[in-house]
Amino acid sequence: MASDEGNGPVRVDSWIWSVRLTKTRSAAGTACRAGHVRVNGERAKPAQPVRAGDEVRVRLAGRERVVVVSRLITKRVGAPVAAECYVDNSPPEPPREQVAVVAVRDRGTGRPTKRDRRDLERLQGGRGGGR
Rank of each mutant, 00 (worst) to 15 (best):
P112W: 04
P92Y: 00
R51G: 02
R107S: 09
G29R: 06
R43A: 13
R118M: 08
R71Q: 13
R105A: 09
S14V: 15
N7L: 09
R115Q: 15
A31Q: 04
G29E: 12
R117N: 03
R38K: 14
P95L: 09
C32Y: 10
P9I: 00
A28K: 12
V67W: 05
D54V: 07
P95A: 11
Q98P: 05
V67P: 09
G128V: 11
A34H: 12
G125M: 07
V39W: 03
T24F: 03
S14T: 15
V12P: 00
E97Y: 09
V12M: 00
R11M: 00
K45S: 05
A52K: 12
T113K: 14
H36S: 14
V69Y: 01
N40I: 05
A2E: 02
L72E: 10
P94D: 05
P95S: 02
V66Q: 04
A82W: 06
V69H: 03
C85D: 07
W17E: 00
T24N: 03
K114E: 15
V101F: 10
H36V: 00
A83V: 03
P95W: 01
A44W: 06
V104S: 11
W15R: 08
R96E: 12
V39H: 02
A100N: 04
A31Y: 08
N89H: 13
R105I: 01
I73K: 10
R63Y: 13
R57H: 09
I16S: 09
P9T: 07
D4G: 04
S14A: 15
E93T: 08
G125C: 06
T30F: 14
V104N: 07
R122W: 10
D4R: 14
G125A: 12
V81T: 15
R38I: 02
D88C: 06
K23G: 01
A100I: 03
A100V: 08
T22N: 01
E5C: 01
P46V: 01
G29F: 02
R71S: 08
T30W: 04
M1W: 11
L21Y: 05
G129M: 02
D116T: 09
V81M: 10
Q48P: 00
E64V: 11
V101G: 05
V69Q: 04
R59E: 14
A79K: 07
T30I: 12
A82N: 08
P80Q: 06
S90M: 01
G78L: 12
A44P: 07
G53N: 05
D119R: 15
V56L: 04
S3N: 13
N89T: 07
K114I: 13
V12W: 00
V58Q: 04
R115V: 14
R127M: 06
T24R: 13
N7K: 15
R57L: 09
V37D: 13
D116V: 11
L72A: 08
A28Y: 03
N89M: 04
E5D: 11
S26A: 05
V81A: 12
R76I: 13
S26W: 02
R115N: 13
S26N: 08
R117I: 06
M1G: 14
P46D: 06
N89C: 15
R105W: 12
E64C: 02
R76H: 06
V87L: 09
K114Y: 02
W17R: 06
R33G: 06
R122T: 14
R57W: 01
A100W: 00
S26H: 04
V10P: 02
M1T: 11
P9M: 02
L72D: 05
A34Q: 15
R111P: 10
S90V: 01
R38W: 12
R63G: 04
K75E: 14
R71Y: 03
G126H: 09
